[in-house]
Structures are given as C-alpha cells and as structure tokens.
Design a protein around this nucleic acid. Structure first.
Lengths: 144, 144
DNA sequence: TTGATTATGATAGTGATTATCAAATTCAAA
DNA sequence: TTTGAATTTGATAATCACTATCATAATCAA
C-alpha cells in the first residue's frame, strides 16, 4: 500500500492525541491522498463512498480536521467563499494561480515576492506570521 | 450632507439600472460611508437600525450588493471565512495587513510585488486578471 | 473477555445568506 | 393630483456548509 509516510504521520498523530483507529478514517485518508486535486468536503465524501458507501459526511468533516491538524492537509479558502483541501505534506509553502475558466490550480512560489512581503509588513510595524496569495487569471490551456 | 460624490455615484447607478429610490438604501449607504471600518453585514445592520429601527437584514444584504456593483464597496473574505465590506471609491487597489490580535486592517500596496506577480503568472502561461493578498501578523500597537 | 473510552452515522441545529411574498412605496404618465 | 405598473421592503421560510448531539458500534488496554 502506498502513502506509507503519510499513514505513519497520521498514525502517530492519532496515537499522540489519545484517539483510536478506525477503518473509516483510513478510507478517507487514502482517498484524499490518492486524489491529487483540491477537493471540497462534499467531493471527498462522494469519492470515499465508492469504497465505503456507509461513511457519513460528518465523519469526512471530522477526519479532514484531523488531516489539517496533523499537517497532511491544509484548508484553502477561495475568493468565492468555497473551501477546498489541499495536500500539505511534502508541499512547501506556496501560493496559487487559479484559472477562472477551468478552475484548475497551479502551485507557485516566488521567493522575491515573499521577501518583499516581509519588507512591506516590517515597514508598517507588523511582525508577519503568514499570508495568503491567490492570483486569478486564464491558464494556458483555456487561452487555446 | 457629506458624501455628495458617493451619493451621486449611487444615484446614477440606481437610475441606470432602472431601479427606484428608497430612504432605506440612503440610510444604509450613509451609515456605511460614515463608518471607516470593514463591517460585516450584521454590524452594518446594527448601526443602521439606530437611525431606522425598522430596516431588515435582507435590505442590508440587498443594498450591500448594490454598493459593490456600483463600485462604492468591495467584499473582503477573510481567512476565517467571514465576509467584510470595505470602502472602494477613492481607494485604489490595495492588499491587506491584518492583525491577528486586534483584528485591525491596514491597506498596503507594493508596486514591486504587483509586478512580480505579473511576471510569475506569465511564466506559468497565465493571463492575470486579479489577485488577493492577505498578510497576517501582529501590529505595532499589539506588540506594545 | 471486559469495560471504559472513542468513533460513527443519522439527524437536529446553527449561522450566514438568499428566496418568497404580500403590503408599501416610488414615479412616470394621464 | 391621481393612478397604476413596477420596484422595494420586512418578515420569514429556505438553503447551504458545517457542527453538535446522541444512541449504538468499534477499539484496545488490562
């Protein structure tokens, strides 16, 4: 079975928190990991039900929260108010280019931009802790 | 009465859309303009009710939508999922520094960052249409 | 095997926002 | 000024994403 690394991380996290193991959480974790897309809770629920039709949406939400706490996933709040979950383990900090036509995401990073943000914050007397940068546009494919 | 400019803009917008005038919308507009803060719909509703207690929350939402369409206001979606409305007329494009302690906003702009975003998008084959940058940190006051 | 604890699924509840609708208001035309 | 068609309003029902509740099931250390 793939994703040994991630499963190990999740296992340790569950153990440290004094939680118990469950087949449902493993199903959800593996479905999440195998899908390299930014899914909504509902989309993930639909996918997981193919493997285990009995899983309820509440368990999906509960597990997504654990995935975020354990560092395997991260919430992504889009400009339209929707929330998607992205892979976080093995993905350094990055920003997003979102295509307004097809909805696809591209992860990007520009260290110069990061530095300038630090400088800008310092100039205003802020101690920066983090940031979210979403860029919207039309991707290569959609421009035809 | 102040805010003649903004009122004129709103008037033209209402007229062009074939809508009618109403005292409630004026109350909401003026309360919004006089408060130089990033308000939620609910907070604005509370303020407007001091002037006109009968105004319903639905009318506040409806009017906020018109304010955004007319260019007087703009929605700001925060990292925690909440939505606030900011003044847009006379405020050029800007990004935000948000204090994670007191919640205050500072509007900032760095033309270098803007240029680098363009360059970054172009490198990925994107035609950039816009972006949202939220920076989180601790402000001068809160570091005390 | 047991039993204390946690997890689950169904579902009720929540909070923010939108839709519906009857009554009130606006405003151009008579 | 009156009229009447169109729009606006406030109350409230509905919706949507998410969380809380709770009885039952599953886990796991002793």
């Amino acid at each position: 079975m793939a994703f040994e690394e991630e499963q190990k991380i999740f296992d340790s996290f569950v153990r440290e928190k004094g939680l118990k193991h469950s087949a449902q959480r493993i199903d959800i974790l593996l479905t999440f990991l195998k899908t390299e897309k930014h899914l909504t809770a509902d989309e993930l629920h639909t996918l997981v039900k193919k493997k285990n039709p009995a899983i309820g949406i509440a368990t999906v939400y509960r597990t997504l929260k654990l995935l975020c706490e354990s560092g395997l996933s991260s919430e992504l709040r889009l400009g339209d108010g929707s929330v998607r979950y992205e892979h976080f383990y093995g993905h350094e900090h990055h920003d997003h280019l979102v295509c307004i036509k097809c909805g696809n995401f591209t992860e990007v990073l520009d260290t110069e931009i990061e530095k300038l943000q630090e400088r800008l914050a310092r100039k205003e007397g802020f101690t920066l802790q983090g940031h979210k940068l979403l860029m919207y546009g039309v991707c290569k494919k959609c421009k035809g």
